[in-house]
């Protein structure tokens, strides 16, 4: 699968990774090479095979509904890039 510039732009936006114009061709060629490589999978017929998402097909373990956490805001926000009055600050969100 050869990816064109438009697709690279779309993926970069979905993934929220800025790609400089000068790098687009490089990304297109590298990602296309990787996709060609993984497409070898098509050599194997997988019709009627159930997908496997978790090793050993385990099932979910659940916990009881109890509050086990207490307020650690100051501690947790000590590593934040920007906070004020206990809030994380980000560039203005326009809905």
């Amino acid at each position: 699968m050869a990816l064109d510039k438009q697709t690279i732009y779309k993926i970069s936006r979905l993934a929220r990774i800025h790609v400089d114009k000068v790098d687009i061709d490089r990304y297109a060629s590298q990602l296309s090479t990787i996709l060609d490589f993984v497409e070898q999978m098509n050599r194997i017929d997988t019709d009627n095979v159930a997908p496997l998402s978790h090793p050993q097909d385990r099932v979910l373990r659940m916990r009881e509904d109890s509050v086990t956490e207490h307020d650690r805001r100051d501690d947790l926000q000590s590593v934040a890039p920007m906070t004020e009055n206990g809030l994380y600050l980000v560039p203005k969100v326009i809905e």
Partner: peptide
């Protein structure tokens, strides 16, 4: 919430990217 944040961005999406 943690880690590196770019110093130069125009808006929220640009900050992420």
């Amino acid at each position: 919430r943690y880690g590196y944040r770019s110093e130069d961005y125009e808006d929220l999406v640009d900050m992420y990217m």
